[in-house]
Design a protein around this nucleic acid. Structure first.
Lengths: 260, 260
DNA sequence: CGACTTGTTGATGTACATCAAGGTACGTGG
DNA sequence: CCACGTACCTTGATGTACATCAACAAGTCG
């Protein structure tokens, strides 16, 4: 039975009162994100209740609990995952700077998934109870949230296609490609290189494969020389080649993506 | 290679001008759905551009195209799916009455998935260009859309866990259970029985398995006598038993679900 | 005209050989 | 100690082939 390494559950620390003013939000430098109007900026500043620094390995959200907070990632990597009672783990998606966490908590009493920090992170914290105010007074921001939810859905669709119907090679090629592209979008790459914070066990749990098989497949895929991955440093060499192996075509995005 | 039966692509007919007034919307009888205020009802009536009757097998939305319309299902079953260039098909989710289709088209230029009617259906049609008006003037409805998107995400999460980490038996038990529960929610069941409009090929493409293996697993699962399924008639006998086999726990929903 | 036969098709059920993926074990190197 | 790499054996899943059965259409005969 494929059982993931038992994740040590670290609880989240309380949010610090510290509030970097939103005008100086580091996310505003990211070109792929839309800009806020002065009025929006003012509201978001007010909406924000503080910042949170969490260490790698911390569980930001935990399956079976409820969270009074919503988060926007300011820096660092994390992943959403679910676990079965016997410890089998499925990683659902990775979350990078500008991604939004916790919206599902508005539908269910209890979170149906967990989120764990892959690296040290900084999070922007919003109280869930003010969410309604956002919908009432800031339709542009409300639309942004829907946009983000629909985008998450679209990523999950593609991921499900991978796990359900792509071969191990295809899956792996697809994952590496997509992760690189998403990191690139938010400025985490330097040229064709990227610091990849996850292990082969993470990859295995993302693609629904065993660790051993992931390793073997990774070796076979590396032989195509479409990328290099050694000691956390990932370098993409032949993007089109990877896409071809994955039989994946990147969707065209309609507009610059929003962030809250 | 597991290739789905080649789906004949039938185009959607143009929406009929016919508009059943929203006060008489058949969905309003469903207890699980929230009620609309008079003002909301008035707007939705205006938002609605017509109705659409489609035959089983019709593609309501098509991967790679863009759709000017959004749909709420008034009656009938359909499924969202993606296909790889060589014909491998992954069914992402089923859509039942009160479910909303097409929101992803607001994020991407082109649809990244298709939707096919499983049975004859009636759809309520909305023009996408009026969506912004809804966000601007009807925050409660905007919130409903977000709620629906978050719910879809939650279903996909669980589905991904299934395909990635559950065994064939568990997957199958999970699917049958969840489909029954969703049908029950919108009043499509009679006691413990349900008209199931899909074939074993659909099940296979949903769970990421081959047709043959689906059939064998279905036989083994049927031997547990937790359900009966013959000639489109599905009867659930031991719900808790199925849930135990699937190691699945149904999430608690926070509020009565909305529909547009 | 209706009843019966025949052929076709789609869905299901099963056998068997093959193969991709899993599990265990035991390396290495940092 | 943990992440990675690899060998070896096992098993779960696939692909192909073929059989059954019901639904349906077309054609034939009394």
């Amino acid at each position: 039975m494929p059982v993931a390494s038992p994740a040590a559950v670290k609880a989240v620390p309380p949010p610090s009162g510290r509030k970097v003013p939103c005008e100086k939000c580091p996310l505003r430098d990211i070109h792929a994100l839309r800009e806020f109007s002065a009025k929006e900026l003012e509201f978001v500043s007010e909406f924000k209740s503080g910042e949170l620094n969490v260490a790698a390995g911390t569980n930001i959200l935990l399956q079976g609990t409820n969270s009074a907070h919503l988060y926007t990632i300011l820096s660092g990597w994390s992943f959403r995952y679910k676990m079965l009672p016997d410890g089998r783990r499925q990683i659902l998606n990775y979350a990078l700077p500008s991604d939004f966490l916790g919206l599902q908590g508005s539908v269910n009493d209890e979170m149906q998934h967990s989120v764990e920090a892959l690296t040290d992170m900084t999070l922007c914290v919003f109280p869930r109870e003010k969410l309604w105010q956002l919908y009432r007074d800031y339709p542009t921001l409300a639309f942004d949230l829907t946009w983000l939810a629909a985008r998450e859905e679209q990523i999950l669709d593609e991921h499900l296609l991978s796990v359900g119907r792509r071969t191990a090679m295809e899956r792996l090629a697809y994952l590496l490609l997509v992760v690189f592209q998403r990191a690139e979008e938010v400025g985490l790459t330097r040229g064709n290189a990227l610091q990849l914070p996850f292990t082969q066990q993470h990859v295995a749990d993302t693609l629904g494969m065993s660790l051993v098989h992931t390793n073997k497949t990774l070796r076979r895929l590396a032989a195509t020389k479409t990328f290099r991955w050694k000691d956390r440093r990932f370098e993409i060499i032949d993007r089109e080649g990877l896409a071809r192996i994955a039989s994946y075509e990147a969707p065209k995005v309609k507009a610059r993506r929003p962030f809250i």
